[in-house]
Computed example of a mutant assay.
Amino acid sequence: MRKILTLFLCLLVSHFASRAQSKVNYFTPGQLWPDDKGTHINAHGGGLFYQKGTYYWYGEHKIAGSAGNRAMVGVHCYSSKDLYNWKDEGIALPVSNDTTSDIAKGCILERPKVVFNKKTKKYVMWFHLELLGQGYKAARAGVATSDKPTGPFTFIKSYRPNAGFMPFYPEGTPVEDKVDCANPKNKSEGFFCRDLSGGQMARDMNVFVDDDGKAYHIFSAEENFTLDIAELTDDYTGHTGKFSRVYAGHQTEAPAIFKRNGIYYMIGSGTTGWAPNPARWFSAKSIYGPWTYHGNPCVGAGSELTFGGQSTYVLPVSGKKDAFVFMADKWTPKDAIDGRYLWLPITFKGDDMEINWMDKWDLNVFKK
């Protein structure tokens, strides 16, 4: 009996020692990233939300094989106190078994982002939605809400934003840059005018809450030829009709937006399907623009393909000055569940930015 008890205690000690050793205090971009259960984190195309000392990571739950790029489970949620070690919080928004639902199992549900509305006390999730069996034809924005950051979120609706509304133009916008549906000047304007009555296409997306509490939905529109920056309603669950077109005529997706020293920054990518391409970045003094294109923020070996990844979010690190983490996905379309995460620190030189590759790094690279 003593031998059995001793063996049991040894196994127990070994178990907890193993768990303690599994705690990490650094990032290894592109490597497997185990959660608290030892399973690779399953939150692709995701975004983060910080509240009261805890970070929440939301992303697409993938399954093995190419079919894993369709939503067979829903949106996964994880929580962390330090950004290195993540607790599995389960599925925050499950897809529906009702084939008539907008979020029916097997639909395409991508790039979920969550923000908190201080007025309604609701957590609001936006995502890019493609209806079951329609490929990428629907190009809708979907929205869901919850009383808790970990969910469950309740799906509200999906639609194409800003039906019937013309763009807002920052002061000084040249006449030739304004849409004229009586005489579209290019493909991009033609797509805009085609979709005017039914709402603009909304594919790759992000959500940003400004210092004044106003929230904005940023998404690829016009067959990805333009990024729209659209104001959300006070409860964050709809659009007001005010929006601007950014980098019109150039195909851009994967937008990730943040603000530093009163300047708005945005990182995106070209449109090459699941294959990586050079990242691109923009800056503006107003959320609606005009936005200035600056080229590729990545430097060094592998920068021409964004180190094999594609932007999904830029995270401001709480409690540290000028601390922003570039988050990207390294997609594996033939086995979606194996997709990896590339998190890298952003370096600023004045108002310019750079992203360098690092095999291993921690938050000490940022000043306090």
Rank of each mutant, 00 (worst) to 15 (best):
K360E: 10
C298I: 01
D228L: 14
G38P: 05
G339P: 01
K285A: 13
I355S: 02
V179W: 08
D177T: 10
L48E: 10
K122T: 09
D329W: 07
G319T: 05
N162A: 07
G135Q: 00
Y159A: 11
E110P: 07
G213P: 01
T28E: 14
E231R: 02
L7G: 10
A139I: 01
G135R: 01
I91R: 01
D338T: 15
V325Y: 08
F168R: 10
A20S: 05
H61I: 11
V73G: 09
L344P: 07
G65C: 02
V246C: 05
D338Q: 15
V365N: 06
K187I: 12
G199T: 03
I156N: 09
A163H: 01
T226M: 11
K122R: 10
Y159W: 15
Y159S: 07
K368P: 10
A67L: 13
F282M: 11
L232F: 00
T28C: 14
F282H: 12
G45A: 02
G90D: 04
G106C: 04
P167A: 03
G106V: 02
W126M: 08
L93I: 01
M327N: 13
T306Q: 11
A104G: 00
G199F: 03
F282R: 06
D362L: 02
T272K: 15
A328S: 15
A141Y: 06
F165S: 12
I4P: 10
L12Q: 07
Q134T: 01
Y56F: 10
G151D: 01
G53P: 09
M72G: 13
V175S: 14
G302L: 05
V246Y: 04
D234C: 13
L227T: 04
H250G: 11
F219G: 03
G199W: 01
I156D: 08
T226C: 12
P161R: 02
A275I: 12
K3P: 07
A64C: 11
W361C: 00
W126F: 11
L342W: 09
R19C: 12
G302W: 08
K185N: 06
F165D: 11
K3F: 15
F49T: 06
K285C: 13
E304L: 09
E231V: 02
P170S: 02
V207K: 02
M166D: 11
P297D: 05
N364K: 14
